[in-house]
């Protein structure tokens, strides 16, 4: 994982094509299964959202706990497909993109295209290595979910591969 020092602003994502490898510096929010269920429940019940969705990048990740003296534990991606049922609604509400591992459903691909979102994958099963790129961690919501709570991560040169671009191009091929 060589560093390229490409710092991306959110507006830059639109120009990225599936297959492109980038290094992202900025803010990510962790959210996985139960956090997605809650966010979607909040939207459906018109409740205030625990996470400000417009412009946000969600990282499907539940890190290990943090050892003393470290910023974060192992923090690799979890299987994105489990979030497929929730993703189109979050994109409709302004979510900018997602980071995870593996392929997405047809509905997610269509929603990415429609709302000009983006889906990245990162080094799967490299949780220890990826912890190097995390510079700070703050709990945002759902503390009771333990490893599934929403964290705000500031990352530097976090390695990403565009898996589904804003035009619907997909690294895994079209279904």
């Amino acid at each position: 994982m060589k560093k390229n020092k490409i710092v991306l602003r959110l507006d830059d994502f639109r120009h990225l094509k599936a297959g492109a490898e980038i290094y992202f510096s900025g803010t990510l929010y962790t959210a996985r299964d139960q956090a997605h269920k809650r966010l979607v429940d909040e939207i459906k019940n018109n409740k205030p959202l625990a996470l400000e969705l417009p412009g946000a990048l969600i990282y499907y990740c539940g890190p290990t706990r943090t050892l003393k003296g470290k910023i974060i534990g192992a923090c690799g991606p979890t299987t994105s497909a489990r979030m497929d049922a929730f993703t189109p609604l979050l994109l409709a509400k302004g979510l900018r993109g997602m980071i995870g591992k593996g392929d997405r459903s047809k509905a997610v691909k269509e929603a990415i295209k429609k709302y000009k979102g983006i889906y990245f994958v990162t080094y799967a099963g490299c949780g220890a290595l990826l912890s190097k790129y995390v510079k700070s961690v703050k709990t945002v919501a759902y503390g009771d979910l333990g490893p599934e709570k929403i964290l705000k991560l500031e990352v530097e040169n976090f390695p990403l591969i565009v898996a589904i671009d804003s035009n619907g191009g997909c690294i895994y091929g079209q279904d």
Binding site: C61, P63, G73, A74, G127, K132
Partner: peptide
């Protein structure tokens, strides 16, 4: 990743 996990006492995978 495996080498870094061992060196830093980090889980290989989260």
């Amino acid at each position: 990743n495996a080498a870094y996990a061992l060196k830093e006492n980090l889980a290989i995978c989260q």
